[in-house]
Write a protein that binds this DNA or RNA. Structure first.
Lengths: 195, 195
DNA sequence: GTCTATAGGCAGATAGAC
DNA sequence: GTCTATCTGCCTATAGAC
């Protein structure tokens, strides 16, 4: 079934965000220009400014849409999977898919340039990590309760480690887009909490 | 005893690299300018160009010195510690110390902006990861041999995971310079390979 | 919504005096 | 080695016509 597209943004605005998103995830927020996007979409930078008056506003739109989509992806996992172990596997696959497209996690790359970001984008980065953390904690707690998962430190600490490992594995593996190395690490992660 | 300073670079050049290093580790290579360094050292950008004709060359000098110092730090560990477990602990402390100074691992942040870097800096980033990997592999292999460490996947895969986790933990923890969270993750790492 | 034209700033970099 | 002065290019952003 066709998913009705959200109409908050115009179609052009969406395409701008699409391109900006790819550029952020490959080069970082400060390392692409309105000209880069304009060229690719065959419009002018003046038109870009009509849709997003400033680059900071484009950045905010970017992180806002990303947060929405990521929350939806987590929702899909919760909806279609019952077992904690399967949920964790699906979670790592979300990250793997980013690397497969030769990108870095958007908030991971934004975390690297955190100091240089406009305030609203900083908040968005922190919220992303917190949301990951919360979701992982829930899954881990559920798995510990039904005895499908087993771990010694707190769910909170394990969640922090899982998130860190996935972010770091992407960061290190992306230069040569080494999916195998990434997956080997992700597998260890799952094994480390499986009962 | 006083360590005789390497005389490859002039004292001014060293100070330039000191400032540049801090700026790279906090803002990223593309997010500071010659003007930033010049202001801080109370010299002009023209003087900077005398020492480092281009920013790419400054970047290369930066990564070269960093590689030297990091290799020396690993050498110190090898020299002063015998037990693999103690070596791993000292290794994680190297990373912790970077975060304590509210910085990100230099090559971690450079990995984030990898696509935008001049070729020599790219190579330096890859070499840094490889050297970390090699050193960790040696320690792990040694620990497996003397039965002080225990792990199921290959030493190679464990080394990759350790490196990834530390890089990711720094990336995620730096926005609020949360040393405790970083250390909690590092402890899990050590526990996961301790016999 | 998209365009042309342009402002204003900052970037990396160079020439040449001292 | 450090300076003043300057160049060139790119960047974000705006005015105003269509």
């Amino acid at each position: 079934m066709a998913v009705p597209r959200r109409r908050t943004q115009s179609r052009t605005a969406e395409r701008i965000i699409d391109v900006a998103e790819r550029l952020v995830q490959t080069r970082g927020f400060n390392n692409f220009s309105y000209a880069d996007i304009a060229t690719e979409l065959r419009i002018t930078t003046a038109s870009l400014h009509y849709h997003f008056p400033s680059k900071a506003e484009l950045g905010s739109a970017l992180t806002a849409r990303h947060a929405e989509q990521f929350a939806a992806a987590l929702g899909q996992i919760d909806q279609h999977m019952a077992e904690p172990r399967a949920k964790l596997e699906a979670f790592t696959r979300l990250y793997e898919d980013v690397l497969r497209r030769e990108r870095m996690c958007m908030c991971g790359i934004l975390a690297a340039e955190y100091e240089t970001l406009p305030k609203p984008m900083r908040s968005a980065v922190l919220r992303f990590f917190e949301e990951n953390q919360r979701w992982l904690e829930d899954v881990l707690t559920q798995g510990r309760a039904d005895k499908s998962l087993s771990f010694t430190p707190s769910a909170d600490e394990i969640a922090q480690r899982i998130l860190s490992t996935l972010e770091g594995a992407m960061l290190v593996a992306r230069p040569d887009a080494d999916l195998n190395r990434f997956n080997a690490t992700a597998q260890q992660l799952l094994a480390s909490v499986t009962a």
